[in-house]
């Protein structure tokens, strides 16, 4: 048996509404907001980055797991906004949560699914007996070029999962995982480029939908289950619309995805997105309930997971549930947002 033994989420305090961004570019914010299903997005402050968000999420995960940092045998931090191109975020996180020095650590990058890639690696290490606990983090302070469609959704946040193998500790067993990967040029950011580029509508059908469908179908065939065997589903959520569409395509009722659909309130947190959604489901899921998770990373790939909540969850929930935590917020206007995200020349 192996699975999640602790979880934690960190979302920055500031928000900017889609309408406020639209106001600056003289667009119809109400229509855009309704169209993409996103009301506002979380904005990292000038003194936050993918690393600081990771540390806070990791601390909360250790708190729910009720283990000290030293017990971690591995840390993998998935992000497309690592503060350094070369110098591992995972090592900084490791030091900050006192997991070093006996520690396997690396940074991962697979667009928005680098967090779940870390979960898979930890799962393998735990199952093989190489480590007792592994920490996987999906974190981003996502970049969107001013006036680009991405600017309405590119948010900031981190989700952290601790993977372990002890039956009395696992709060959600990861029954199986399946990945679907192809070379697909839907979204990328070149080395040294400040903002990512994307291929517009090409990011939908041949990218997001094809890969998540491939991963989920592959997983379900492998474990001989059907979409309706799950009580909750969490899909990567670049906006508020795609996860609903993909759920519908599997015949999954919308009510099963609402608890894990966080993007409408905090924007797309990229590598954090499906991880944070899963954490929100863990806030309320009951023992025995089943969760289907499918991340998506451009470029492209999807990792699907079948997860079963255990009775251990009852005394290991987060102190503050995700939906509660994100209620603490402070709105920024576009100027303040531009300052914090260093979008003003000279900063």
């Amino acid at each position: 048996m192996a699975g999640i033994v602790g979880y934690g989420v960190q979302v920055p305090l500031r928000r900017i509404t889609v309408e406020e961004i639209a106001r600056v570019w003289k667009k119809d914010g109400k229509k855009i907001s309704a169209g993409i299903g996103v009301k506002e997005k979380a904005v990292a402050a000038f003194d936050e980055d993918a690393c600081t968000l990771s540390v806070e999420a990791a601390r909360k995960a250790l708190e729910t797991a009720k283990i000290p940092g030293q017990k971690l045998g591995a840390i993998f931090v998935g992000s497309e906004s690592h503060p350094y191109a070369v110098k591992p975020t995972a090592a900084i996180v490791g030091d900050a949560i006192q997991a070093s020095p006996e520690l396997m650590a690396a940074d991962l990058q697979f667009a928005c699914k680098a967090g779940t890639a870390g979960v898979q690696i930890c799962l393998g290490l735990v199952k093989s007996g190489m480590i007792e606990y592994g920490l996987a983090i999906g974190t981003d302070t996502a970049q969107g070029r001013p006036n680009d469609a991405l600017e309405f959704t590119a948010g900031s946040g981190a989700g952290a999962l601790i993977i372990g193998g002890k039956e009395n500790e696992v709060i959600a067993e990861i029954q199986d995982t399946y990945s679907f990967t192809t070379d697909t040029p839907d979204f990328w950011r070149r080395q040294h480029a400040e903002f990512p580029q994307h291929a517009g509508r090409f990011t939908g059908e041949p990218a997001y939908f094809k890969h998540i469908t491939g991963a989920v179908k592959g997983l379900l065939a492998k474990i001989k289950m059907s979409p309706n065997d799950f009580d909750y589903a969490v899909f990567h959520q670049p906006n508020g619309k795609f996860p609903k569409q993909i759920a519908k395509s599997f015949g999954i009722e919308e009510k099963k995805i609402i608890q894990g659909l966080i993007t409408p309130m905090i924007g797309n947190t990229y590598s954090g997105s499906s991880m944070i959604g899963l954490c929100s489901v863990l806030d309320i899921a009951k023992p025995g309930e089943k969760i289907l998770v499918a991340s998506y990373g451009s470029g492209a790939g999807s990792d699907a997971f079948s997860i079963t909540v255990t009775k251990n969850i009852e005394n290991k929930r987060a102190k503050v549930p995700v939906l509660e935590m994100i209620k603490e917020k402070e709105y920024a206007d576009y100027a303040e947002y531009a300052k914090h995200r260093k979008k003003i020349k000279g900063l």
Binding site: F46, D47, D49, T52, E56, P83, Y84
Partner: peptide, 13 residues
């Protein structure tokens, strides 16, 4: 846990 000083875009944080 926050950034305290990040004044050189190519330097250490």
């Amino acid at each position: 846990f926050r950034k305290i000083s990040d004044i050189d875009p190519e330097g250490a944080i």
